[in-house]
Computed example of a mutant assay.
Amino acid sequence: MRVLGIESSCDETGVAIYDSEQGLMAHQLYSQVKMHAEFGGVVPELASRDHIRKLAPMIRGVFTDAGLEFGDVDGIAYTAGPGLVGALMVGASMGRSLAMGWGVPAIAVHHMEGHLLAPMLEEQPPEYPFVALLVSGGHTMLVDVSAPGCYRILGETLDDAAGEAFDKTAKMMGLPYPGGPLLSQKADQGVKGVFEFPRPMIDRPGMDFSFSGLKTAVRLAIARHAVDEVVEEQIQADIACGFQQAVIETLAIKCRRALRETGHKTLVIAGGVSANKSLRTALHAMCKKERARVFYARPEFCTDNGAMIAYAGWLRLKAGQQSSLKVEVKARWPLDELEPINV
């Protein structure tokens, strides 16, 4: 079975073709970062309009890249949520329309299920069951994955997601949008231990997250060391380092709890923040002590992309699932409401 995947949940347009025998045949990704940088964050209306401009040429492009005739697929998968409603409607409308025109089934895909399954695109994918850490700009959650489509939420963020905390902290430091990756680069130049920030909620039972108090601690540190509203470069790097270490250690501690509670010996990390090298190093070290293995997607598939949607859609289409003719998207969509996938 060959599936076209379309991702348009926020500020990246992703298109890919996945084949059950040949694997990923082609994928294209366009980021709107430069457009939104002028405004310091994603502008939903502009995001939707840009998806409209980019999506059709990219769809034609992946068929050309894959050496296929236009429309030579057995199904279409599109992101239906969670995300920006206008942006989601662009991809969903296009996917549903092409499916009707080509006479193939279409399936609405959960954006976070796509991220969760992205490591399955690698040569050595993880085996079920496993614990998944989904960590991105909009979500931070731990999930017990017993089988495809069988998800139990172990813990999630009570306020900002980890990626959101990175971006907001970077903005406090005066770094340009998107600040998260720049903050990580600055943290690599800092000295560990100069600033010790709180590890939120690690002294409480459970696996929920909260990063609002950590952001407040960083804001106070910036204010204490600012001279005429300017923080010395090295102090800024040390603060960034302290912040990043606090987030990473918090995530590692909660992941360890999840592995011990479930008894699983496999950890999957997915989402944009999973590309952070320091996070990967810390989780590798933690898993080694727990005699567990850690898996993640290659960096290009950590951020939003069409390949993960094509793969997730293929799994559900192969199981006989398909969406109705109604074009429906969801700004919010709990992951544990999804149907199991009978593979």
Score class of each variant (00 low, 15 high):
Lys168Val: 00
Val42Arg: 03
Asp144Pro: 04
Phe243Gln: 02
Ala319Val: 05
His264Val: 07
Gly206Cys: 06
Ser31Ile: 09
Ala108Tyr: 08
Arg224Glu: 13
Trp314Met: 10
Thr216Asn: 01
Asp228Ile: 00
His111Trp: 11
Ser210Gly: 07
Ser274Gly: 08
Val73Gly: 12
Asp11His: 10
Ala118Trp: 05
Leu154Pro: 01
Gly71Cys: 08
Ala226Asp: 06
Ala92Trp: 09
Ile107Pro: 00
Cys150Thr: 15
Arg60Asp: 11
Ser278Trp: 01
Ala331Ile: 00
His27Trp: 15
Thr79Tyr: 06
His225Arg: 11
Arg2His: 03
Val143His: 01
Gly81Ser: 02
Ala99Gln: 08
Glu229Leu: 09
Thr303Met: 10
Val268Asn: 07
Ser278Gln: 12
Thr140Ile: 03
Leu317Tyr: 09
Gly179Glu: 02
Leu24Lys: 05
Lys192Arg: 15
Pro148Gly: 12
Gln189Asp: 12
Pro334Cys: 11
Arg332His: 14
Gly174Lys: 00
Leu29Ala: 08
Thr303Ser: 15
Val218Tyr: 01
Leu175Cys: 07
Ser274Leu: 07
Met1Asp: 02
His110Glu: 03
Gly138Thr: 11
Leu267Cys: 08
Leu98Pro: 06
Gln189Cys: 10
Ser184Ala: 15
Val294Ser: 10
Cys150Met: 13
Asp19Ile: 06
Gly174Ile: 02
Tyr18Gln: 10
Glu123Trp: 03
Ala310Pro: 08
Asp19Pro: 08
Phe166Asn: 07
Ser184Asp: 05
Leu259Phe: 11
